[in-house]
Write a protein that binds this DNA or RNA. Sequence first.
DNA 1: GGTGCGATGTTACTTGCGGTAACACGAGTC
DNA 2: GACTCGTGTTACCGCAAGTAACATCGCACC
Lengths: 214, 214
Amino acid sequence: MDTTQRTDQQRSADRRRRELLEAADRVVLRDGPQASMNAIAAEAGITKPILYRHFGDKGGLYAALAMRHTDALLASLRAALDAPVDRRERVESTLDTYLAAIEARPQVYRFLMHPAEGSTGGDQGFDVGKHSAPLLRRMGEELAQVIEERVDLGPESQRLARVWGHGIVGMMHAAGDWWLGERPCSRAELVRSLADLLWGRLAAAGDRVGGPGF
Amino acid sequence: MDTTQRTDQQRSADRRRRELLEAADRVVLRDGPQASMNAIAAEAGITKPILYRHFGDKGGLYAALAMRHTDALLASLRAALDAPVDRRERVESTLDTYLAAIEARPQVYRFLMHPAEGSTGGDQGFDVGKHSAPLLRRMGEELAQVIEERVDLGPESQRLARVWGHGIVGMMHAAGDWWLGERPCSRAELVRSLADLLWGRLAAAGDRVGGPGF
DNA sequence: GGTGCGATGTTACTTGCGGTAACACGAGTC
DNA sequence: GACTCGTGTTACCGCAAGTAACATCGCACC
């Protein structure tokens, strides 16, 4: 029948696509975000045009690849955010989940943060703003939603939740990136310090004696 | 004399370098971070090899370019951080300074955040971690220093200050990036919301009634 | 005053990557 | 057996980074 044919084909195409993505994954894991299409094709045992038929262009492949990892990471984060414990503990466990992930697979992490920068032509549209990685945006939105659902923030609740969602994600990201590069302390210490920051310890701390001006 | 000769030459070279950087600046402002070396050379009225003699490679040029803007922005931020007002106001004014800067020159901002990603060969060292823009790192360190100087954080003061420096900068950056893309509210509202977050309002807020689980 | 020399500039090239056109083959269909 | 469609290939284009080799001007030095 026509329908069964088509489903068979689709299934086959999907399987192929998954295989290609896994090959691409291996290459990106090895070569970093600058893995070339040639290298990926070679790893998959085929040649470039097939990749282009499946994913359109490099951006498409990278987007598909990023989606997989982003989904996986977001699922872990959602689990941490849904744990039935108090807020502080939930925040700490979410931070820790994220940091553990980037610690375990730094190459993947780097790829997710700098997806498709280089290459020729392409985005002459110059999308100012929203230049940051899709992962950050998605995490920000996700967190915003959780905050808005769970925390009572009064009339401006929606705006506050979104600002905070993106802000907290950015804090986590930047601190994590810095920490991954310098390793100045243990993961647990980092988590506690960030949670302390979110818990207002900056506002609560006193001025240093002999500080300039006040 | 030998010395005066050399200084003359150096001066001339420095002037030339500055001219080249200004040309590069114009092109980057027009074409975004993907400005080609050819385009920059053309804008400066010369040809590629001269650029390479002055800056080594594309990364060198971009680094020099980024340094100028980074220095300028950091100077503004330092001024805001040094204002003789109370802490909350200082935090808000620093946030506002940063956001005003990225709002005024989004292309420059984008360039600073995504400096030299693409291109061929190069960093096979795969510097995991420290992949983020130098601007973010410098701002983080700067803020860390200010915090450590001014705020009394007890025994772990140094570590806390650095974590917070990078974390706050990341929060500012991510929120700013998102805000620049979506413009969901005024700058002043964003500033207030972020300051509220830093002032512990997340910890202080109550649970939403009927929330899932608790 | 010719002469070497270093800075400044050019043209023309190589290499490597993203992306595509054109061709080749194998399996099902009428 | 011809047709077509999915899958694959080779060979190419365009373009950008980076470089080699050559041209020119100013200028100290003998």
